[in-house]
Amino acid sequence: MARFPRCLRRNCNVTTDKLARFMEQYKSRVEALLLQSARKKETPQRLGEAMMYSLEAGGKRVRPLLLYAVLDCFRTAPEKGDAAACSLEMIHTYSLIHDDLPAMDDDDLRRGKPTSHRRFDEATAILAGDALLTRAFQLAADDRENSDEKKIRLLQLLTAASGAEGMVGGQMEDMQAEEQTEITSSELAAIHDHKTGDLLAVALQMGGVLSDCTEIEQSQLDRYGRCIGLAFQVKDDLLDVEGDEAEIGKPVGSDETNNKHTYVRLMGIEGAREFLDQLLRDALDALGHIDADTEILSDLARYIAQRTA
C-alpha cells in the first residue's frame, strides 16, 4: 500500500529538491519544443503572434510534466514523449483561449496578462485556439520517435479526452450547470472529471502507452489521474477564496462574483479542504499498486494539492 507521509500535513514544503529539478528540466524542455513546433513560416503573422502569445503566457505545464513523470517512472527515454507532451499543452492552451471568450467565461486576465481576445480581438483568439488544436494533432501524427501502432493509440486517447466525450463535453456541462440554482457534489465532480480530469488523466495514459505498461499499471495510472484532476479543481476553488491575487493571476472571489458552482460553495472551506486531502490520499494509494519508482508522481500529486497558484 502507498505510504501517507508527513507531507500530507497542510502548508508543508512539497516541492522537494528532486521535484524542483525535475519540473525545471522538463518545463524548460517542453517550452522550447512548443515554440519550435508552433512557429511555421506559412502561418499568417497575426495568427502566429496570437498563438505564441498564449503559449508563452506561462503556466505550470502540469500535463506534460505528468507524462514525463510516467516515462521517468518506467525508465523510458523522454524523447519518446516529446510530441505527445507538446500536443497536450497545445490542446490545454487552446481550451483556455476559448474558455476566456465573452461567450464563455468572459475573462479579462489569464495568468496576470490580458486574455487573448483582449490582447488581439475575439475572432483572432478563436482562430488561434483552432490553430493550436489542429497543430496538436498534426504533431502527434508526425511523431517520428514511435511506431505507427503507438501513434494511433495515442491519437485515440487524445481525441477521446479532448472532444465531446471529454474536455469539450465537460465545458458544455459546466455552462449548462451555471443555469441551475443547485447542483450536487457528485454532479459537480462529473463535470470536472471531464472538463479538467480527462486531459490530466490522458497524459498519464499516454505515458503508460509509451512505456508499455500493463493493464493493471494503466488502470492505476488512470485512477491516480482522476484523483489529481479533481484535486486540481478543488484547489483552484480554494485559491479563489483564500489565494493571493498576485500569485493566481486573477481577482480573488471571481467564482462567487460570477455565481459559479464550486466545491467551496457546496462544502464550505473546511469541507473542501478535507475532500482535497482525501483525493490526495487516494492518488497516493493508486501509486502504491505500481511496482516502479513513483516518487516524482507522488511529489507532483502533493504539489498539485498544496500549490499556492
Rank of each mutant, 00 (worst) to 15 (best):
F4C: 05
C7F: 12
C7A: 12
R10F: 05
R10T: 09
R10G: 05
N11W: 09
C12V: 13
D17E: 13
L19Y: 09
A20R: 15
M23L: 15
E24Y: 08
Y26E: 12
K27T: 15
K27R: 15
S28N: 15
V30M: 08
E31D: 15
E31C: 12
L33P: 01
L34G: 12
L34Q: 14
S37P: 00
L55F: 05
E56P: 02
A57D: 03
G58N: 11
G59N: 05
V62H: 01
P64G: 11
L67P: 06
V70T: 13
L71G: 10
G81R: 08
A84W: 06
E89S: 07
M90Y: 04
I91H: 04
S95L: 11
P102Y: 01
L109H: 05
P114N: 06
H117T: 05
R119T: 01
R119Y: 12
T124D: 08
L127S: 02
G129D: 04
D130M: 02
A131Q: 10
A131T: 08
T134S: 13
A136K: 04
K150R: 14
Q156P: 00
L157T: 03
G163V: 07
A164K: 10
G166H: 07
Q171V: 03
M172I: 14
E173P: 00
M175N: 01
E178R: 14
E179I: 02
T181C: 03
I183D: 04
T184P: 03
L188S: 09
L188Y: 07
H192G: 02
H194R: 15
H194M: 14
T196D: 07
T196Q: 09
T196N: 11
D198E: 14
M206S: 13
E215L: 12
I216C: 04
E217W: 01
R226F: 04
Q233W: 10
K235S: 03
D236R: 06
D237E: 05
L238I: 13
D240W: 05
E247R: 15
G249Q: 10
G253W: 06
E256D: 13
E256F: 10
K260H: 12
V264L: 07
I269T: 14
F275M: 14
L276W: 08
D277V: 02
A283H: 07
A286E: 04
L287I: 06
A292H: 13
S298C: 11
R302W: 12
R302T: 00
A305Y: 06
A305F: 04
Q306D: 02
R307F: 10
